[in-house]
């Protein structure tokens, strides 16, 4: 198992290295001259530091190394400093990845401000969709071709086909405007300090969560269903039945347990994917998360922010792939020995 995990981690690191190079190279090629059009609002000395941090006149590889150093060494050190309060070396003199808009604020600071919103909304939506979709899928698969199965199939196909940007707008119209249950605008300045603000926060998160969860549910429940159907036909299920095991035990211990192995990996693999959905959802509901940050930075040609956000997505993708691989190996011994 140890060798298996180490091999996976090494592949993951190699992948990240490759992705970071691609992200840097692609955006380096992107139209838009780096420092010529910096907004007037950025002070002169910040501009000078941005140029220095980018290494404007350096060759390509040099710039990539600088960026890598800032992403991998400088920012983590700053993060440690901030959380622990211990000063490490010359904290003022280090060159950080700096946004080209937002008055030259360091990118990581902006992202740290935005990340919690995304994590709450995306995390809750995903949790909710897994909690609903897995039992639905198990039941639909267990009673294949029953009316329940057929209805859930129809709903799943429709769920695949609904664009979140359409359902989102409709949901706002129905639940916020007509019924008045939830606020129409997401209050981005809300700080959770008391029970009341917590309640407010939850209330404004319900709609984006609903929209995101519905889209995810379709895929997960379909997958669970087909996995259950496959296992229902397995020899060990027939054996369990023929030795007179109670139906409940057959289903819980043999069918569900085995069919959830691929589902667990799908759920782990799907976590980065839901951030893609979050981009659109955040845009509709005006949630100030990193998805919205990505889009606004793209529109204002703020390359450092775009690079960093994409790189964070890449890290998430690789980490969750790793988790999925390891989980698969833990849950299914057949995998790690092959």
């Amino acid at each position: 198992m140890g060798a298996y995990i180490i091999r996976r981690i090494l592949t993951g690191l190699l992948t990240l290295l490759f992705i970071s190079f691609v992200i840097f190279a692609l955006l380096d090629l992107a139209p838009g001259d780096p420092t010529a059009n910096l907004p007037q609002s950025i002070p002169q000395e910040v501009k000078a530091r941005i140029r220095e941090a980018l290494g404007v006149n350096d060759p390509f590889l040099m710039r990539y190394m600088k960026w890598g150093q800032q992403f991998l060494i400088v920012e983590p050190i700053n993060a440690i400093e901030k959380t622990t309060g211990i000063a490490i070396g010359d904290s003022e003199g280090r060159l950080r990845i700096t946004s080209w808009t937002s008055r030259g604020k360091p990118v990581v600071d902006i992202i740290i401000e935005r990340l919690p919103q995304t994590l709450y909304v995306v995390g809750m939506a995903y949790l909710l969709s897994v909690l609903i979709a897995v039992p639905l899928g198990i039941f639909a698969g267990y009673r294949q071709n029953s009316w329940f199965d057929q209805i859930s199939s129809v709903i799943a196909v429709i769920g695949f086909s609904l664009p979140t940007f359409f359902t989102g707008v409709l949901v706002i119209q129905i639940f916020a405007v007509w019924l008045g249950w939830f606020p129409t605008l997401y209050n981005t300045t809300l700080r959770v300090t008391s029970m009341e603000t917590l309640f407010q926060q939850l209330r404004q998160m319900i709609m984006p969560i609903m929209v995101l969860a519905f889209f995810q549910m379709a895929a997960i429940s379909r997958f669970t269903r087909s996995s259950v159907i496959e296992n229902m036909k397995a020899d060990y299920v027939r054996t369990a039945r023929s030795k007179g095991l109670r139906e409940r035990l057959v289903v819980v211990r043999h069918v569900v347990r085995n069919s959830l192995i691929p589902v667990v990996t799908l759920v782990a693999l799907g976590i980065p994917g839901i951030f893609g959905g979050a981009i659109v959802t955040e845009q509709i509901f005006n949630v100030n998360g990193i998805g919205q940050l990505l889009i606004t930075s793209l529109q204002s040609n703020d390359i450092p922010v775009v690079q960093t956000v994409l790189m964070i997505f890449a890290v998430l993708v690789v980490i969750f792939n790793l988790i999925a691989d390891i989980l698969y190996g833990v849950l299914d011994p057949r995998i790690r020995y092959s």
């Binding site: 992948t15 693999l269 980065p272 994917g273 839901i274 951030f275 893609g276 959905g277 981009i279 659109v280 994409l310 997505f313 890449a314 993708v317 690789v318 792939n321």
Partner: peptide, 8 residues
């Protein structure tokens, strides 16, 4: 490529 969310 497959690991990345297609939209991103």
């Amino acid at each position: 490529m497959l690991a990345f969310p297609s939209l991103i």
